[in-house]
Design a protein around this nucleic acid. Structure first.
Lengths: 241, 241
DNA sequence: GTCGTCAGCTTGTCAGACAAGTTTCAAGCG
DNA sequence: CGCTTGAAACTTGTCTGACAAGCTGACGAC
């Protein structure tokens, strides 16, 4: 069968795309940031434009960047469509988004369960830090919209990290980002006043308590409850899992 | 802000890559099949080689095809690395594969649970058909390696389909394909003789019975048991979820 | 029959050019 | 002054032609 990998010739475009991707990742470039022009990249890497274009093409396929003719290359803001582009090709309907949310819910419930089993003190520190940040946003009344949403994000990431499974963490961070915009109406002024933020925080604390107590089943149920409520806040039909 | 999508100029390379992808998908081209040469594709689509190359570059990024300099473009056989390339960049270690497997296990357990809740008669038909096919492969003694592995795949797909969640199904089909090679040693002659196939089949039947009885919890547990056993057959450390 | 060689084909890369779209900025107008 | 308008510069999208690097298969020497 001879399936051993026998040193194929390296492709320049692969090296270039990896380099650019690590730029974006390591420098933490925000979505919308413009990257250097193709011409600049050609000079910087010492390759032809064809190679740079092929590298960018790959990044575009990955959903890392998007190009606008006449404007330039920009860091893409992850979208649900981009996330699942490789699993289908067309635009997303509302029902499909609900399906994607259910998938995410399923993974997050499992993650909470694993986190309860495997968390260590460092994980607890990150979790409680995120909780405190959300508490501050709750008390801070009006201005804390962004902080609250960010802390919300950080909490979910901390849960994923506590599983000790880097791939699971990657996947959840990735999926979570798709829904980051959906967290804003919970943490803006209107959400704070309407009690949506407080409700979300109560759900978070239930998850935290269960993870703290190493209560795997409780963590799962709390996560499901939280995400079901979140789905309702999003206006998605709550398909009970 | 004007975030409405305002009819961006279509890209030729996108159209070409979609067309080629649908060829592969609809015609069911087997991994290793050679695609037409770039020159041929240029003539067939009436575009320049740059466009065709960009389209192929995208397909390569998706893991649909692979190119070999001097030889041609070939339909790729899915690999674990390709599956998660979008979540990281380097080659996969054994530990990372274990993490990916755990993630898959988690989703599959949830899928079994949902399938038990939502399955209809048509779903049951597909499930039992796959089960019967595996039974045949078990009895057929030696020659049925491929058939058994295929039926195994079909069973998992049928479980995913029974959830009624197309996205979940897509995701599981996608993940399942990555591990398709891992099913062969269970269903080849050695696996049949060693009883690995029979063991897997027993695990499958447990899942089926639970789904038939609409026993969500039982289905979850059966799925976890099956995938834990599968992980062990793969030689991965069994991190009990 | 076996082995080496070589011509032909395919992909990888390069270079230059034009088309199409965007951004910028200054001139012109109310 | 504020606003529109239009040209110019810039950027990506596409085309063309060419050569390098690597593979394949056939042909001839042995």
């Amino acid at each position: 069968m001879m399936s051993g990998k026998l040193a194929r010739p390296p492709r320049l475009s692969d090296a270039v795309s990896r380099q650019i991707e690590s730029w974006i990742r390591e420098m933490g470039l925000a979505p919308g940031t413009q990257l250097p022009t193709e011409k600049t990249l050609c000079e910087r890497f010492g390759v032809s434009r064809a190679v740079v274009r092929e590298a960018i093409s790959r990044l575009r396929a990955d959903g890392c960047v998007e190009t606008r003719q006449g404007a330039g290359v920009f860091v893409a803001q992850p979208s649900v469509a981009a996330a699942f582009r490789l699993l289908g090709d067309e635009a997303r309907s509302k029902g499909e988004i609900a399906d994607i949310f259910e998938l995410r819910c399923l993974v997050e419930a499992g993650a909470a369960e694993l986190a309860a089993r495997r968390r260590d003190d460092e994980d607890l520190g990150r979790l409680s830090a995120a909780l405190e940040a959300m508490d501050e946003a709750l008390l801070g009344a009006d201005g804390g919209s962004e902080n609250g949403a960010q802390a919300d994000d950080a909490f979910h990431v901390a849960v994923a990290a506590a599983t000790g499974n880097a791939q699971l963490e990657h996947f959840l961070v990735f999926m979570g980002r798709q829904f980051s915009a959906s967290r804003v109406p919970t943490w803006n002024a209107a959400g704070l006043q309407a009690g949506r933020a407080a409700a979300a925080q109560a759900e978070h604390r239930r998850i935290f308590d269960a993870i703290l107590a190493r209560d795997a089943k409780g963590a799962r149920e709390a996560a499901i409850a939280h995400l079901s409520a979140a789905a309702e806040r999003l206006g998605l039909e709550p398909r009970r899992p």
